[in-house]
Nucleic acid binder design. Structure first.
Lengths: 337, 337
DNA sequence: CTGTTAGCGCGTTCAG
DNA sequence: CTGAACGCGCTAACAG
């Protein structure tokens, strides 16, 4: 049976060391304000008593908790883990702690989480938020906010600008002779989705290609797999997917119908997180999830330090990474198995 | 430019409603102790002032924060996201909030995180901890702890018992005619790894098979891919991998060497999280990451309610799920490309 | 350099 | 049913 020790307080340490409470406090936060020997004596006493500063009490008094919240729509999506890792590393450098929240693509859950986090964190990073602009603006009045892949004027944001990469993807397909293509889209509330969709539209128009849009409920492997029938019905010979996960699902769906990629059909993902993990290796639009995570946190920390919200809009560029899922359009249309 | 509103306190609400501070407090925590009309009046005042209870102050006073921490070694490993989701859902049912921490497989980082979380959470779930028994025991004296996939007597734990499933895997390979097999292992500090390794050893011995153990630095796609040379040098015709991620890496490594799975080589994963996502679809040992997440949280909540740590050991069973990466052993040995 | 004195915002006795 | 008073553990002026 495990015994639990109960919180030893600052005053007990003060008594044990024969000093005032404030000195103990200083020994931990401003050792340079005490004589070295006093610090030493206090630390020794604290050590033997097993004193550990009470984070909650400190936060109540200073208003600083040393935590920052990071909320993502779906940890299971391979786009986020690297971002999260990078965020954590960056936060760590300034001795901040990341509280991670997962909304399961659910705006209500996201709203709830933000409310729950506010008050325990000094600031919040919202990645690929599914909330309305109004809700986000409302939250921004409560605490410092940084957005990832969401473009709201007046709120600091860091964006992966897919347009260049997506444009290259369309060019790539056009050069391979594809005339009819499809875009398997992502969540309606996703900024990235809107952005990618219009980039494709622009590219297709420019090259006189026929474009169909296939909706999906959420960016998942399963959704991609189930979108395949709809894709095939459009008569397209190539598809661009909202993200790599969806693309991977499409890959499987095609294989199940004995359609060989890239011989019979070409496919391009976005985010480039599955890279060579799929078979065949997926052609995809690069991203910078690591940089984005790092930059967002660094921005937030700057804001926390300066107490001053500038209207920053940090956009990162993208490009196409060609691998093995794209090839010449089939010469006489798709051979359905 | 976004303006930030500053914390409206309980006393402001009290003034506005013409009551004492304590009444406002009660209106939120024990409405049944006030007259309905008073409650109504207070809530109205709070609403218009935009009052929101200060979580930190409340926690300081009550010792209850309504948070529980969940620490995992690697969010990027597909084993964890479903577990995390389930944990979050279960916590939500009791109106608790999950703080997620990621240790990047680093014991020092894990130790740091636990220290950082303790004091802001009421209890902690450590999933696949890489800490030593001593450290875990030490932490357990500080706050309620529940372990996932770590078997320490005296500390509540929920375990996925792979032995049955792994045993079936070995039987399966034996029946297919494989005589020499290899185990590509996981982290040294992993309880699951130790357990799986001994299950394989027992099975191989029982069927008179030759077994080689290949170490890896961490359970990742990359590690699996890099382990392939070592695997091939053992002369094995089949391999069991510590987890699906490693197995997927091995799959790629084999493909790169033009070794066709399952014709030339058989492979089995563990955790069954990549299921049909790989190509060919991976034969794997089932798991219950969802149940494990749910159960661990539910256990912790029980402990928090009863203030009483029982020595619970909850073990879940596993079985083999056969898909397309296992087949008869090649009749005249492996044809190296 | 160190001790003293106020709060931080809220929950909770304990009288009325 | 309500209000006044105290304390949670710590930091931040302000003296000395």
């Amino acid at each position: 049976m495990i015994k639990r020790t109960k919180g030893v307080t600052i005053s007990q340490v003060a008594d044990a060391a024969g000093v005032a409470r404030s000195s103990v406090s200083r020994a931990f936060t401003r050792p340079d304000m005490l004589s070295p020997e006093t610090v030493e004596r206090i630390l020794r006493a604290a050590e033997t008593l097993g004193y550990v500063p009470n984070h909650t009490a400190r936060a109540l008094s200073t208003g600083r908790h040393g935590n920052i919240g990071l909320i993502v729509p779906d940890i299971a999506n391979p786009f986020f883990p690297p971002l999260i890792q990078a965020a954590q590393t960056e936060a760590d450098r300034s001795d901040f702690c990341i509280f991670l929240g997962n909304t399961a693509e659910n705006p209500k859950q996201e709203d709830k989480l933000v409310g729950r986090f506010a008050g325990q964190v000094e600031g919040l990073v919202l990645a690929s938020s599914r909330l309305s602009d109004e809700r986000i603006r409302a939250h921004a009045t409560q605490l410092p906010l940084v957005l990832i892949n969401r473009d709201i004027e007046g709120i600091p944001r860091v964006l992966i600008d897919s347009s260049a990469g997506v444009r290259q993807a369309v060019e790539h397909l056009a050069n391979l002779g594809h005339r009819k293509i499809a875009y398997v889209s992502g969540p309606a509330a996703s900024w990235s989705n809107k952005q990618r969709r219009s980039a494709i539209r622009a590219g297709a128009t420019a090259r006189g290609m026929e474009l169909s849009i296939i909706p999906t409920p959420s960016p998942t492997y399963q959704a991609g797999r189930e979108a395949v029938d709809a894709v095939l019905q459009t008569g397209a010979s190539a598809v661009v997917a909202f993200d790599d996960l969806t693309a991977q699902g499409i890959l499987t769906g095609l294989a199940e119908r004995h359609i060989v990629v890239p011989r019979d059909f070409s496919i391009i993902g976005c985010d480039d997180v599955l890279g060579a993990v799929t078979f065949p290796a997926l052609t995809s639009v690069s991203n910078h999830s690591v940089d984005v995570g790092r930059i967002a946190i660094s921005m937030l920390l700057d804001i926390l330090r300066s107490r001053n919200v500038a209207d920053v809009r940090y956009a990162l560029d993208t490009k196409l990474v060609v691998r093995d899922t794209t090839a010449d359009a089939p010469s006489q249309g798709l051979q359905l198995g």
